[in-house]
Simulated scan of single mutants.
Amino acid sequence: MIEFKLEGEFIPLIQLLKATSLVQSGGEAQTVVEDGLVKYNGKVDFRKRLKVRVGDVIDFMGQKITVI
């Protein structure tokens, strides 16, 4: 599990995937979200501009990111 310390009110989902090094680029992040490979709090979410906040859990390819 990856714990990501949020430095503000929210972080866009695509930026979170890049910041945790689970993807190499913004384009790759957009593709994995569009393809339904990302779960937001247990449910597949296709929103690229999703605002991830403290307490949210992102699941991608077996890796869980907890936002603290």
Rank of each mutant, 00 (worst) to 15 (best):
S25A: 03
T31S: 10
K43C: 00
V23Q: 02
T20L: 07
F4E: 08
G42W: 14
T66H: 14
E28Y: 02
I14Y: 13
D56E: 04
V54Y: 03
I11T: 12
D35W: 07
G27S: 09
K48D: 10
M1T: 13
K5A: 10
A29C: 06
L22G: 04
L37A: 08
V57W: 04
G62I: 02
V23R: 02
I58K: 04
I58A: 02
V67S: 07
K51R: 15
I11K: 13
N41L: 10
S21M: 06
P12F: 11
F60H: 03
K5P: 06
G8K: 12
F46T: 14
A19I: 01
V33S: 04
V57N: 03
L22V: 00
V32S: 06
E9R: 02
L16Q: 05
P12S: 11
V52D: 11
K18N: 02
V54A: 09
E28K: 04
G8C: 03
Q63Y: 12
I11Q: 13
P12I: 09
F10N: 09
E9W: 01
V52C: 06
E34K: 15
I68V: 12
K51E: 13
D45E: 15
Y40W: 14
K39R: 14
V23K: 01
V52Q: 04
I11R: 12
L13Q: 09
E28V: 05
F4L: 05
A29L: 08
V38T: 01
K48S: 13
T20M: 06
E28P: 00
V44K: 15
D59V: 10
L50M: 15
V44M: 10
R53V: 14
E34T: 07
E3F: 11
D35K: 15
L6S: 05
V33Q: 02
K5T: 08
D59C: 07
Q30I: 08
G62S: 00
V67Q: 06
M61D: 12
E34H: 08
A19R: 14
V52A: 03
G55T: 09
K5G: 04
K64R: 15
G62W: 05
F10S: 13
T20R: 02
K39S: 05
L16W: 11
G42E: 07
R53N: 13
K39Q: 15
L22W: 11
T31P: 00
M1E: 11
G27D: 01
D35S: 13
M61Q: 12
S25W: 01
L16K: 09
R49T: 11
Q15A: 11
K39P: 02
D59Y: 07
F10G: 00
D56Q: 05
G36P: 04
V23N: 04
G26H: 11
T66D: 00
F4T: 01
V32A: 05
K39G: 06
V44F: 10
I65D: 10
K43M: 09
V32N: 09
Q30C: 06
M1S: 13
V67Y: 09
L6K: 06
F10M: 01
R53W: 00
V57M: 07
T66E: 13
